[in-house]
């Protein structure tokens, strides 16, 4: 479904990604782990069109998407749920969700999508008219994810969805991601929470200093010495 081949991405003159290749198949959860500054967010931003790769290609459903504008990529069915939630805090929860459905095709079906989002996160229905800034951290994360789903994506790029949440909420968020996959969503998941993401993911890859250090099935990775030492603290 998503094919990333030999991507190099720069911030100005500083190279952040080196020759990154990765593929995500339909209906899979692929976890992307690695320490701070390894290039995880950079990779997601390259996929969603916020950054452009200097070389290499990205194809989605058989079409080249590197070089497309971010809004066109959203329209094609990729939703990037950014790190740190980034809600529109002076808008209501309902308005935040509405903005998620901004692209044309999604706008026409926004009522229907909204019902689906409310089914996943019932609390958002109760909070509908409340300002986003008045919600708790967990609820804010739900708004961020709900807003991302409002564009009716086929592939979700989640950037640190569990960041800063209490353990119980983390489990809840991971459960939601699993449910989404069970309903046919494809997920690329960036996480600091390595153990839990490897548990729900099918495959994973480890980024180090902008390069793919390891990639493979999750069970196999959990046995790798490097992963055990660096990320699981064993």
């Amino acid at each position: 479904m998503l094919e990333i081949s030999n991507i190099d991405t720069y911030y100005g003159k500083a190279q952040a990604l080196w020759d990154v290749s990765l593929s995500v198949d339909e209906g899979e959860i692929v976890a992307l782990v690695g320490s701070n500054g390894a290039g995880k967010t950079t990779l997601l931003k390259t996929l969603s069109g916020v950054l452009r790769p200097a070389s290499g290609t990205v194809t989605f459903l058989g079409q080249r998407i590197d070089g497309l504008a971010p809004h066109s990529i959203v329209e094609m069915g990729i939703s990037h749920i950014p790190e740190g939630r980034r809600l529109f805090t002076q808008m209501s929860v309902g308005e935040n969700l509405e903005m998620g459905a901004y692209v044309h095709a999604a706008w026409k079906r926004r009522e229907e999508t909204l019902d689906q989002v409310h089914e996943i996160f019932p609390v958002l229905k109760e909070r509908q008219g409340q300002l986003a800034s008045t919600l708790s951290g967990g609820e804010q994360q739900m708004v961020a994810m709900g807003r991302g789903l409002m564009s009716r994506p086929r592939l979700c790029l989640f950037d640190e969805p569990s960041y800063g949440l209490a353990p119980m909420l983390v489990t809840e968020i991971f459960r939601v991601i699993q449910d989404l996959r069970n309903q046919g969503m494809t997920v690329l998941l960036v996480e600091q929470n390595v153990r839990q993401s490897l548990e729900i993911a099918d495959r994973a890859c480890v980024l180090e200093n902008g390069r793919i250090a390891l990639a493979g099935e999750c069970e196999a990775l959990l046995e790798e010495e490097l992963v055990k030492k660096a990320y699981l603290g064993l």
């Binding site: 916020v50 809004h71 329209e75 990037h80 901004y102 692209v103 564009s151």
Partner: peptide, 15 residues
């Protein structure tokens, strides 16, 4: 308004 609040989030929303 969403551009005024958080332009990057507006970009991710497909605007």
């Amino acid at each position: 308004q969403s551009i005024g609040e958080d332009e990057e989030a507006a970009v991710h929303a497909g605007i």
